[in-house]
Simulated assay, not measured.
Amino acid sequence: MFERVSAAPADPILGLNEAFAADNRPNKVNLGVGVFMNDDGVTPILDTVKQAETRLVKEEITKSYLAISGDREYGRQVQALLFGNDSAVVAANRARTAQTPGGTGALRLAADFMHTQLGVNTIHVSDPTWANHGNIFTSAGLTVANYRYYDAKNYRLDFDGMLADLAKVPAGDAVMLHGCCHNPTGVDPSPEQWQQLADVAAERGFVVLFDFAYQGFAKGMDEDAAGLRAFAEKVPELLVASSFSKNFGLYNERVGAMTLVATNADTAEAAFSQVKTLARGNYSNPPAHGAKVVATILTDDTLHAAWIEEVAAMRNHIQQLRDLMVNKLAERGAARDFSFIGRQNGMFSFTGLTPEQVKTLKEDYGLYMVGSGRINVAGMSRSNIDAVCDAIVAVL
């Protein structure tokens, strides 16, 4: 039977990583896969994570299963980060959080809930969006549509187009929004634009899903949640898929969460019972270690403060690389103004390079990036950024 199964195409991001690993050139650079790397080219373990793990090794007494919804304290801390310590949503007990295997697991759980419980058949995502969004949503039985988002000619948000498209979304459909550090463009709405988008969502009544994977990587923990909190004030019901892969460096621990916000506590509890049923039929219950690390850090004032500083250091490192790249490309007389890279947020940038140029960079220079021209800025370092800029200028 298996001989009738044809080979699937390689994942556009993870497949690129495999090709990079097989490349024997010593000066190759991987700007494809979305992980933070320091100047040594290493994805580090945060000091606060090490301290929390040391504490857990000493204090843990069991490896028994977690509840279907995961660690309770973890869920409380997720809600505090998303909505703020003084959130009316949390105070009214309107939110419920399911710990999930990564942000990807959270997106799939949200998609299953929307499709089976809310009757959603179509979800609208930004054009462009993360390459795996389509796979996740179609696997859950949803049809994927696009709304305008990126003005490729001017390297900025096409806010008028976005607003116009969302104003046409039917009430029975869903809309997915990137909470901050839009992947792949690095372009986010302003606080004022978030307020306008929330008004449209409240008026139209479509289902809102936030993909919130990079909190703290744009401006700061609270600043990056401005869009989500604007929606929480104006839209009575919404879903949030969040992740701690990036801001805790817990990539391989798969630490995510799906948070449901309802109009009142009773509705939240009833709806969340269906979320738990869906989780039970999928992965049964989530892995414990990464979530316990997060909860340990966030409930300890000293570790929490130190973690905020570690996230700030990662954010500043990325911004410094952005500014350095812009300057070096200008110094080399690049046949294009790349100053927009310095104005973008988070790890990713849409460079505007064509698929042909991307192919040449890979084949001739050992510089790997996604075919769309998206790069992971955090994949650069001070030791390889000159080679990266030389290669880009050469193919323009």
Rank of each mutant, 00 (worst) to 15 (best):
E233N: 09
D386T: 10
M1Y: 00
Q196T: 13
A271K: 10
A7H: 06
E253L: 03
F36T: 00
H289Y: 14
E18P: 00
A306S: 13
L278N: 06
P184T: 15
Q215W: 11
A91C: 12
F350W: 11
N183K: 07
I308K: 12
E237F: 08
V35K: 15
V42F: 11
L321K: 14
N247K: 00
F113H: 06
T277V: 08
A305V: 01
G186S: 02
I61Y: 11
A131C: 04
T360H: 04
V293W: 01
G134Y: 02
R204D: 07
T48A: 09
S87R: 02
Q193V: 08
L81P: 00
F231R: 10
T299H: 09
F212P: 01
I385G: 05
G134S: 03
V175W: 15
A111M: 01
V275W: 14
P189A: 00
P191W: 06
D364K: 15
A152G: 13
M162V: 06
V235L: 04
N30H: 09
D337S: 06
G172C: 03
A387E: 07
G32F: 12
K58D: 07
A335T: 07
I341L: 15
M162R: 07
A265F: 00
L321I: 06
L166S: 02
F159A: 07
A257F: 08
S383T: 09
A262Y: 03
R322H: 02
M314K: 14
S381I: 00
A7K: 12
P287R: 12
T277M: 10
K234C: 01
T354C: 02
N345M: 02
F83I: 08
R280A: 14
V120H: 10
M347Q: 12
N27Y: 15
R280M: 09
R332L: 15
D160Q: 05
R96D: 00
Q320S: 10
A164K: 10
R148P: 09
Q117K: 14
N154T: 11
L353A: 15
E3M: 04
A98H: 08
D224P: 00
V293D: 03
D23T: 06
L250R: 08
L118E: 14
M221K: 01
D71Y: 08
L163K: 10
W307G: 01
V57Q: 03
L329G: 08
P184F: 15
R76S: 11
L321S: 05
T62H: 07
P287H: 09
L260M: 08
D364W: 12
I318L: 02
Q117A: 10
A218N: 10
S349V: 11
